[in-house]
Write a protein that binds this DNA or RNA. Structure first.
Lengths: 343, 343
DNA sequence: CTGTTAGCGCTTTCAC
DNA sequence: GTGAAAGCGCTAACAG
């Protein structure tokens, strides 16, 4: 039994393909009786529209491509969630693709994108400048980037404003009576330097604004990982650096730091208060639960996809905007009053 | 400037569409010189194949639909990772869709699937029997389910064999000198009962095989969450139940349990050893790090997608198989020697 | 209201 | 080797 097409339905119902199409698409210029006959034929034959044919005919693919870094980190799930929430509402599909590795891979992806495999594209955390983004846009394919490093000007972007969360964090720590700060910065790698230095500079400024100088001896570069955090704190301790507040540039680092502090007999949050960055899912499962700056990935992603869909469906010519999304501190249990205040 | 099609290239190169198509698809029955001329035209016009047209013409959509429960839990990322790994290798895209809520939603999804929006479908953790799965299969669309509850016979499924991990867990605890066990089982809800009771039964049997009876007083139903774990342990403690090993039916529960134990002054792992289930990403970030039964989602998902792609591309008629994937215990720090053994 | 006629853009026989 | 023509299955003007 061959695949049943709209043509079969038409013949079976004694009408033309056009009429069937109209019935299928709920057009109101069809006689009630005819419509019924068509419906019966559809049911009898078990007909279903071929999506691909519809897509070609309508010039849409009802999907948004989500290009993610190949190292799908835990936080990716937040991005996906946000994207799916919006996609579902608009009956779009989220097509996940991982970032291309080499030149050949890149060319293929770009060809797919320009070939309109998707109606719009959301690029998550591009490390570098992506020269093909403007081309896509010029080709009329809406593109948005999430959390880039400012390396793709002219492309609509949603980026977190880390300063608000950092201000809150510093204000929180200072309010708690903390007086000497140490900071675990990101690793000295090309790829991560931008984020890393930005966060450091913001912390430094926020502290300075409150009269605290964060000198270089109190800053140690570390990997964005649990092990990195452990090593970082061990390093600080070994050098005899004193601090009652520790700021980590990622949550995993913060957890490692808490482990190292505990190993050294320093109680978190009393002896040392710790704040992380990102608010990863595990932040609620650490002991103590982690106070951290929430990176609003879900929101950014949802807003980005909503915007993309709007410019896909509404034909609203997307205009390059840079949406800055505020970050906030989530206070949990890894921060608390200073020892001499607690009573 | 209109969209450039294969026809434009053909005219520009002075050949027919067919020839262009052959060049595009690396067919060898094209004269070298002609091919070059076509290539130049392609480059000059900036032509790119329209994916949708290719898809319609070839009857493929180069994608695998991933239907996930709407409550995208943390563990979903593992499923996605596994799926993407395989998809990427085969140049397929993973199109994520969330489970339909009502009847209308379901109908629409089924219509999309039967309408070949995707070449194959992977359904993750269907709660109930899905009557439309066999239909899809009958329509020639490969379908596989991941971690179902045996509610969809006749459909290829990848399911974890929890018994192996549970055997290992019990053997590990007993080997540690643990003698009295308590178990936090799943909630008394319709939806989760299957998993919950299966795990309980397996634990009970494994313990019995080693001479330990897990009586009802030592089993308490709890939510699969941190709060559930806390409440469960509080309940046990209040009732004066004594135990030196606690088995949780999920990792989040295990973390909650550890919190409650700590609050009660019971040290993990010495006073009470705790084992979880799933090996969620946060298991490495808890304090102590969680010993738990690893749920091989990544592997199952990767294997499932690989199988789907094989039957999509190879035209290998997929035969309903039930792949049982062994689980294993990951020993971390929440389990350790019993108090009187430690020395 | 309904049907005719062109598409959508590429692939694929099958003659030449 | 190359091209004409017939799809793939649906949509969309435009007559009638």
């Amino acid at each position: 039994m061959r695949k049943v097409t709209i043509k079969d339905v038409a013949e079976s119902a004694g009408v033309s393909k056009a009429t069937v199409s109209k019935v299928l698409n709920q057009r109101y210029d069809v006689n009630g009786e005819t419509a019924e006959r068509v419906q019966r034929a559809i049911a009898a034959l078990g007909f279903v529209k071929d999506r691909r044919a519809v897509q070609l005919a309508q010039g849409r693919s009802d999907s948004v491509g989500l290009i993610v870094p190949s190292s799908t980190d835990e936080w990716m799930i937040e991005v996906l969630r946000g994207a799916m929430q919006e996609a579902q509402a608009a009956r779009f599909t989220i097509a996940v693709q991982t970032f291309p590795e080499g030149v050949a891979d890149t060319d293929r992806l770009v060809a797919d994108l320009r070939g309109r495999a998707f109606d719009g594209v959301l690029v998550v955390q591009p490390r570098d400048h992506l020269p093909w983004l403007p081309d896509l846009q010029a080709a009329g394919i809406p593109v948005t980037v999430l959390d880039d490093h400012g390396t793709n000007p002219g492309i609509t972007a949603f980026v977190p404003d880390e300063s608000t969360g950092i201000e809150e964090a510093v204000s929180h720590l200072v309010g708690l009576g903390r007086e000497s700060f140490a900071l675990l910065s990101g690793p000295n790698e090309e790829r991560t330097r931008y984020t890393s230095e930005k966060r450091l500079a913001l912390y430094r400024a926020a502290l300075l604004a409150r009269g605290f100088v964060l000198d270089d001896a109190h800053v140690v570069p570390a990997e964005y990982s649990l092990a990195g955090g452990e090593a970082g704190v061990a390093h600080l301790l070994k050098r005899g650096v004193r601090f009652d507040a520790l700021i980590a540039s990622s949550d995993a680092m913060a957890v490692g730091a808490m482990r190292a502090l505990k190993a050294a007999g320093l109680v978190v949050p009393r002896a040392v208060s710790v704040v992380g960055f990102d608010d990863f899912p595990a932040a609620n499962y650490t002991d103590p639960r982690l106070t951290t700056v929430h990176n609003p990935l879900f929101d950014m992603s949802a807003r980005a996809v909503r915007g993309l869909i709007a410019s896909i469906t509404g034909k609203v010519r997307q205009e390059a905007a840079r949406e800055i999304v505020r970050t906030h501190l989530i206070v949990r249990d890894s921060t608390g009053p200073a020892i001499n205040q607690g009573g």
